[in-house]
Amino acid sequence: MSEHEEHTTHSQGFYLAIGIGLLVLTATTVGAAFVNLGPFNPIIALLIATIKATLVVLFFMHVKGASEKLTGAVVVSGFFFLAILLSLSLADYLTRSWR
């Protein structure tokens, strides 16, 4: 572990570009909400939200390029256990009506 490996901070322009990208994605998702896409409305909205969240995690929170994999593992484990909570709860709710 070297002394200055921490802080893969990027240039100011890079952060502004990511910020503008996030704003564009927000505009896109709002626009998409006014178009009737049937079952794809929620899918597109959540997909865009996930892209936005990923951008924030990777670049604003500096997980990409971090000196160690541990940070990434912590993030992934957080979402993994959230997925357990959601999926096993739904395992109950989605099969209640089955006979």
Binding site: L88, A91, D92, Y93, T95, R96, W98
Partner: peptide, 10 residues
């Protein structure tokens, strides 16, 4: 009162 199928999984 959970679903029988969920009960089996759990």
């Amino acid at each position: 009162g959970i679903s029988l199928y969920a009960a089996m999984i759990f």
